[in-house]
Design a binder for these strands. Structure first.
Length: 838
RNA sequence: GCCCGGGUGGCGAAACCGGUAGACGCGGGGGACUUAAAAUCCCCUGGGGGCAACCCCAUGUCGGUUCGAGUCCGGCCCCGGGCACCA
């Protein structure tokens, strides 16, 4: 037991009287009141709701998208608000540039997260989700973003998921959706399959439980058909490099060759061709054995009679092992077994043994490899363990052609080919080409590209998702639910708990799954799996501009005007999930003629991660920033501005409680400075110079998301405005209020109104930058002697080299470092002069 | 292991194309106002030396290029993220 520490924050009724005017406290800056006022007015006036006319005919459409949140019971996370604020500032700024900004928001409310939480607290998702959505809506409105609340999307709304199901059917009709029994990732805690993208280091992305391998009938989307296009388009789309990089890694292209090895002797003395995939065809003369994956279809027929028992036992053993163990990097000694069969190396003509080993995976390439222990780590390890021959076919140089291999030589750039007949002396890249061409001529090889990307497993044996719109009929087989019967509504069932059978909870509800076959009318059975949440979010951005239409997923004219999305800002945690799936679905819709673009997001920027006091935020640490509390304390404007100030937006930063006071003080000063302005007389040229420099800086920083430095620039200007005892002039403060507006929209609106404007500040345009007003009269010229700073001169900006040198040498403090004739003088106009060699 | 980021004061961070390192803010110290505290306002605040003008050192580390390097090149060490028995 101990005493609770008193809160260090300043309570709403404390003596904090920031923003108090010189003539008394009666008109102090009170964000809570003022923000409520403007949020009410924005809503009443429909400030951020483009009229239907505008949606149809916007002259300068700007679709400003942010990743719609999953409405958790915990409420809006500061990470959400960080991302949304960064996007909102961009949108507000574009609006002040007279763009027609459409900034919608919605809720990604289906999925295991909600369902697990509902199970935990013993409530039903259909009761839980509307409450969470209401809470999120309240929080989002309080945060001061310019959302169009007339066009929200909720993925759990049948009006929405009707079209999610429609998309499934489009893919099915196109042959891009298929059902297959396959080894899949099974999460024993969540009791469902997971997509590869949802397995992190062999564990479930959601709950962290180790994933098991199961063989189940699952629905897949053929995203692999699009691998090359998904990869190639990355070269031209305007996305953050970090995101593109993650996608490239995930798609995992490798260029190589498929080479056929003929088996020499099988159990029934059968001939068999074994294609292997390799990226190192140049090393084929060093291929001393073949390895097949234990699941390889030829294993059974190839195995020699005498080896059958051993092979069968080995295959059985690996089958029992789950995928996680088998793929985990650490602690895995390679194991394998000889089949008793041999294959002919097409390059050397030698008979080489065929082995089976678990380090070869059926799911990649052809499920078989040619092992080159001299030049591959894994093959080397395996060959050493089982005493297989190791041959050197690449060397640092020809003199070292016979140097013993203590370790595999794997450098595939440097090196020269040896012991490879007519190819000796070639470089590795040359040999790759020439050997493939040679084998190709003989009909035993062809160049091939393989991708690491797998087809997208979209079925989930859970309740809280859109039912997959399929009906099975004993007579007619599998039937898509006809479009007129969509949506297949997710029924309210009390018992939605998943079980360990690998069958969806919906399969326990006969009254729901028994339906007539759409083809013959006899009783059939619905598909009882639901689809992955990531299918819901793979197309939501297409829906926003068309939310009022119930007879189409997205209106053609609306879509032409508003899409692709102009600017998308979100987290990199979705780099290979949502962002890849959205691209895939868009490509398919494009091929089917539903949209006329194949990339959904013209521009995407990934924001950074926000940590707190140097540590990751997490519920278990108890250091999660709850936006509500901070907004109550400091106001939404101060909170927004602080989030943007704490670090570079694309890199994230460290949230420090105490630092918020800095931006709050800035807003307080803005408040008093504007209200205490004078109208008479003229602005000071020095102040106007700084103002125009600030206009330039902020205008340059916002489009590159340099929000932290934009805020710093405004603070600097504020310091200039307030230097000394003077009161600022109207023309000095008015543009500053406009610059602040994207960051702190409420206070900006209020001050704008108090400055006597009757139209809102977001209709006021963006202050114009005047270069002639920004120009300095004198500059500080740095004087270096031999590269060391020895003085500073205040000189006219257009000073010449000769004048600068003369001025420098005339300076007593500088001349004492100059003892003779300069050997060289470096002059950077407007910057510095460097006197060298004295 | 491969591919991206990143390492700068007590702290969060600035620094355009190689040209004054530390803008802006937090924290800290001092002062003004106040009976007092809070709030507000003013000054100082990288380290070391000097009475002072000033001087020396300093951007993870070692080297290089350059008149000049936080920035460019090479090696190494840490931190964050992506990929990974992927042939």
């Amino acid at each position: 037991m101990g005493f609770a520490m008193p809160p260090t924050r300043i309570a709403a009724d404390s003596g904090y009287t920031g923003g108090m005017l010189r003539d008394g406290p009666r008109d102090a800056y009170r964000p809570a009141e003022l923000e409520a006022k403007w949020q009410r007015l924005w809503e009443e006036r429909g400030t951020y709701r483009p009229s239907d006319t505008a949606l149809r005919a916007a002259a300068r459409p700007f679709y400003n998208l942010m990743m719609f949140p999953y409405p958790s019971a915990e409420g809006l996370h500061v990470g959400n608000m960080y991302a949304f604020t960064g996007a909102d500032i961009y949108g507000r700024w574009r609006r002040m540039q007279s763009d027609d900004v459409f900034e919608p928001i919605g809720f990604d409310a289906f999925g295991i997260h909600s369902e697990n939480f509902a199970l935990k607290v013993g409530t039903h998702p259909m009761d839980l989700i509307p409450k969470n959505v209401a809470n999120f809506t309240r929080q989002l409105k309080r945060s001061g973003a310019m959302y169009d609340w007339s066009r929200t999307v909720d993925t759990t709304d049948p009006r929405y998921y009707k079209w999610t199901q429609w998309i499934f059917i489009q893919l099915l009709n196109r042959g891009l959706a298929y059902k297959q029994k396959a080894a899949v990732n099974w999460c024993p805690f969540d009791k469902t399959v997971l997509a590869n993208e949802q397995v992190i280091n062999g564990a479930c992305e959601r709950c962290g439980t180790a994933v098991e391998q199961r063989f189940l009938e699952q629905w897949f989307f053929r995203i692999t058909d699009y691998a090359s296009r998904l990869l190639e388009n990355l070269d031209w789309i305007d996305w953050s490099d970090s995101t593109k990089n993650a996608q490239r890694n995930w798609i995992g292209r490798s260029d190589g060759a498929e080479i056929v090895f003929d088996a020499e002797r099988g159990r029934r003395n059968e001939e068999a061709a074994i294609p292997v995939f390799t990226t190192r065809a140049d090393t084929i003369f060093g291929a001393t054995y073949l390895v097949l994956a234990p699941e390889h279809p030829l294993v059974d027929s190839l195995t020699a009679e005498a080896r059958r028992a051993d092979v069968a036992a080995y295959v059985e053993r690996t089958k029992r092992q789950d995928l996680t163990t088998r793929k985990s990097v650490e602690a895995r000694e390679k194991t394998g077994v000889f089949t008793g069969a041999f294959a002919r190396n097409p390059a050397t003509g030698d008979a080489i043994p065929i082995w089976i080993a678990d380090y070869v995976l059926m799911e990649y390439g052809t499920g078989a490899i040619m092992a080159v222990p001299g030049h591959d780590e894994r093959d080397f390890e395996f060959a050493t363990k089982y005493g297989l021959p190791i041959v050197r076919v690449v060397a640092e140089d020809e003199a070292r052609a016979d140097a013993p291999l203590e370790a595999p030589f794997t450098d595939n750039e440097r090196g020269v080919i040896v012991h490879s007949a007519q190819f000796d002396g070639l470089t590795v890249p040359e040999a790759k080409q020439r050997i493939v061409a040679w084998l190709e001529a003989a009909g035993t090889a062809k160049p091939v590209v393989h991708y690491r990307l797998h087809d997208w497993c979209i079925s989930r044996q859970r309740y809280w998702g859109p039912p997959i719109p399929i009906i099975y009929c004993d007579d007619c087989g599998m039937q898509a639910v006809p479009e007129k019967d969509l949506p297949v509504v997710l029924p309210f069932v009390k018992d939605f708990r998943p079980d360990d059978t690998g069958i969806s909870p919906l399969a326990r509800h006969e009254e729901w799954y028994r339906v007539p076959c759409p083809e013959c009318g006899r009783m059939g059975r619905r598909e009882t799996d639901v689809s992955d949440t990531f299918l819901d979010s793979a197309w939501y951005f297409l829906r926003y501009p068309s939310t009022e239409f119930d007879d189409r997923p997205f209106d053609a004219a609306r879509t032409r005007r508003w899409l692709p999305v102009t600017s998308y800002i979100g987290g990199n945690e979705h780099a290979v999930l949502h962002l890849l799936y959205s691209r895939f679905i868009t490509m398919v819709l494009n091929e089917l003629g539903h949209v006329d673009f194949e990339e959904p997001f013209k521009k995407f920027r990934a924001h950074g991660m926000i940590i707190r006091e140097g540590a990751k935020m997490s519920k278990s640490r108890g250091n999660v920033v709850v936006p509500d509390e901070y907004i109550r304390e400091w106001g939404a404007d101060a909170f927004r501005t602080y989030l943007m100030f704490l670090g570079p937006f694309e890199e994230g930063g460290d949230f420090r409680d105490r630092s918020i006071s800095g931006v709050r003080r800035f807003l307080d000063r803005l408040w008093t400075t504007v209200l205490e302005r004078r109208e008479d007389g003229a602005a000071e040229p020095q102040v106007m110079r700084k103002l125009h420099q600030t206009i330039k800086k902020v205008g340059d920083d916002i489009p590159r998301l340099g929000y932290n430095t934009a805020v710093a620039a405004m603070m600097e200007y504020m310091n200039v405005l307030r230097a000394g005892e003077r009161r600022a002039h109207r023309t000095e403060v008015e543009p500053l209020v406009q610059l602040v507006a994207p960051f702190a929209p409420h206070i900006a609106e209020e001050l704008w109104e108090r400055l006597g404007h009757d139209r809102g500040i977001f209709e006021s345009g963006w202050p114009a930058y005047d270069e002639s007003l920004a120009a300095e009269e004198t500059i500080e010229l740095v004087v270096q002697v031999n590269g060391k700073v020895r003085g500073r001169l205040h000189v006219p900006p257009n000073i010449t080299k000769e004048e600068a040198l003369a001025a420098a040498l005339a300076d007593e403090g500088i001349r004492k470092f100059v003892s003779g004739e300069p050997r060289k003088v470096v002059f950077v106009p407007g910057r510095l002069i460097n006197i060298v060699g004295v």
